[in-house]
Design a protein around this nucleic acid. Structure first.
Length: 193
DNA sequence: TGGATGATCGCA
DNA sequence: GCGATCATCCAG
């Protein structure tokens, strides 16, 4: 089989909205001592830097958001609502803030383990939210800052687009204040033909 | 030092 | 709709 092609720093080190759009269809891989889990990215959200009030970097760097100003291709994991970890990937060149929230996956490898992690009875909605993804793939603060361009437990590979699929854009979810730009992207199946 | 806030989820 | 539940931020 072909060697997995891991997305490199040049992929991540570009405009955040563009990276968010192009991450659709890519494969997120979580590798631990117990094996491999993966999923195809089908929903993302872009968060930029100063001037984006919904972004953690929107009011300049803080200890938490500093990573968004750092080198691209790193994981930005943070804890939200007292119970969920959320996974982002850092974008833009070093010195410029940006990150893409991974919001939805189509389950791939390690399905049984993902089901177990999620305590799911059915596969409906198994990984269709950012908190579900981190729960399902065992992603937490220990992975914050991880270099996604290396094969170090968490990385993203070139995936594929299925025929007929299209990308839709809409406003970000759960944003009370600020921008309602179309910064949320989804990969939706073709209408069948 | 503490109160407000939040890029959520699952259940009523 | 609401509660769970806590890291982070900022005002005082």
């Amino acid at each position: 089989m072909n060697r997995e092609e891991i997305l490199d720093i040049a992929f991540y080190g570009r405009d955040t909205v563009r990276v968010a759009r192009e991450l659709l269809g890519k494969i997120l891989v979580r590798q631990t001592g117990d094996g491999r889990m993966s999923g195809r990215i089908v929903e993302t959200e872009a968060y930029t830097g100063p001037g984006d009030p919904a972004s953690h970097a929107g009011r300049g760097p803080t200890p938490r958001s500093l990573i968004m100003f750092g080198p691209p291709g790193r994981a930005y994991v943070y804890f939200c609502y007292g119970m969920h970890h959320l996974l982002n990937v850092v974008t833009e060149r070093e010195g410029t803030a940006g990150a893409v929230l991974i919001r939805g996956l189509e389950p791939g490898d390690g399905l049984e383990r993902i089901r177990r992690n999620r305590g799911a009875k059915t596969d409906r909605g198994l990984l269709d939210g950012p908190g579900k993804i981190t729960r399902g793939l065992e992603i937490d603060l220990a992975l914050n800052g991880r270099d996604l361009t290396r094969r170090e437990g968490l990385y993203i590979t070139r995936g594929s687009r299925k025929s007929g699929e299209t990308v839709t854009a809409g406003p970000r979810v759960g944003i009370r204040k600020g921008l309602d730009k179309p910064w949320r992207f989804r990969l939706v199946p073709g209408t069948g033909s």
